[in-house]
């Protein structure tokens, strides 16, 4: 193919625009979290500045709530991920290996259910959760987060398990292995990639989720995004530096995780949306 210099320049420009669009908002708050207020509010913005930890110190001293929120987020994310991945893997196995009318109907139901907006079900769940004494607990968030990802998770797992040759199960069955043994000893280890892909979705979702945390938690189980939103409400343009520091702390682990798990994220997204 001919190499047209104009085309190459245009392409370079397009790449720069894409990079700027994706990264400037993130880089801006991360850099600004190391700035003093004076540097944050400098016009024009300063790229060269004396970095300082003051915002992080202030965050630590005045927003103990935030670190408690991080711990809650960690617990809820871990719980939801384990529950969603296991339930999805087991169901994915059934949808990959069994054939029955009932399964067709239930697979349809599973995907159909994704169309119901989460906010709608908060209406009956809110009084029910209160009545059961489950509001402001890790448990309710774990259940809600897992529930909203088992549909996608099952779909992704089925796609991955479909790629494992059925002859392997049949050979194991001939050797006298039960279905459960086949599942635990063969299918789950062989579909580890799919489980990672499902885990990536759930981890990013549970770590960042706002709506359910906002409605179902108040103090004890409050997650990090909820504390961040309180900081937005409380600061009203005053404590931007501390807010940037908190946002950076909340974002950095999951950002690194997404970059490292990139391959699985892409595989999961394609498996979950193109199939079914």
């Amino acid at each position: 193919m001919r190499r047209n210099p104009l085309l190459i320049a245009l392409k370079g420009l397009a790449i720069l625009v894409v990079l700027a669009w994706s990264l400037i908002p993130i880089a801006m708050i991360m850099l600004s979290s190391f700035k003093t207020d004076r540097d944050i509010f400098a016009v024009p913005p300063r790229l060269a500045f004396q970095p300082t930890w003051t915002n992080y110190v202030a965050l630590w001293e005045r927003w103990g709530d935030f670190f408690h929120g991080l711990l809650n987020s960690l617990i809820v994310t871990a719980g939801a991920t384990i529950v969603a991945v296991l339930a999805s893997a087991v169901a994915g196995y059934a949808y990959s290996r069994f054939r029955h009318k009932v399964l067709a109907g239930s697979a349809f139901f599973l995907i159909f259910i994704r169309l119901i907006p989460p906010i709608v079900i908060t209406l009956p769940l809110f009084p029910a959760v209160n009545w059961l004494g489950l509001n402001d607990t890790h448990f309710i968030l774990i259940i809600l987060y897992a529930t909203f990802f088992v549909s996608l998770g099952t779909l992704v797992m089925r796609t991955f398990i479909d790629q494992i040759p059925k002859e392997i199960d049949e050979a194991a069955h001939l050797d006298g292995a039960s279905r459960l043994q086949v599942l635990y000893k063969l299918i789950l280890p062989l579909s580890a990639q799919g489980m990672v892909a499902v885990a990536v979705f759930v981890i990013v979702y549970a770590w960042n989720e706002f709506l359910f945390a906002f409605i179902f938690t108040t103090t004890r189980a409050k997650t990090a995004p909820l504390v961040l939103s309180e900081m937005i409400g409380a600061v009203e343009g005053v404590e931007w530096g501390v807010l940037f520091a908190a946002s950076t702390v909340q974002l950095l682990p999951v950002l690194i995780f997404v970059v490292l798990a990139q391959k699985h994220l892409v595989a999961g997204l394609t498996a979950g949306s193109t199939k079914g």
Binding site: S22, L23, P25, I26, M28, I29, V204, W207, N208, E209, F210, P225, L228, S229, I232, L243, F244, S247, Q250, L251, V254, L255, F257, V258, V259, Q262, L265, V266
Partner: peptide, 14 residues
């Protein structure tokens, strides 16, 4: 892919 990792709350801050 980076923005995929960002929470709605942090995105609003940005």
């Amino acid at each position: 892919l980076a923005p995929y990792a960002v929470s709605e709350v942090s995105a609003v801050v940005m």
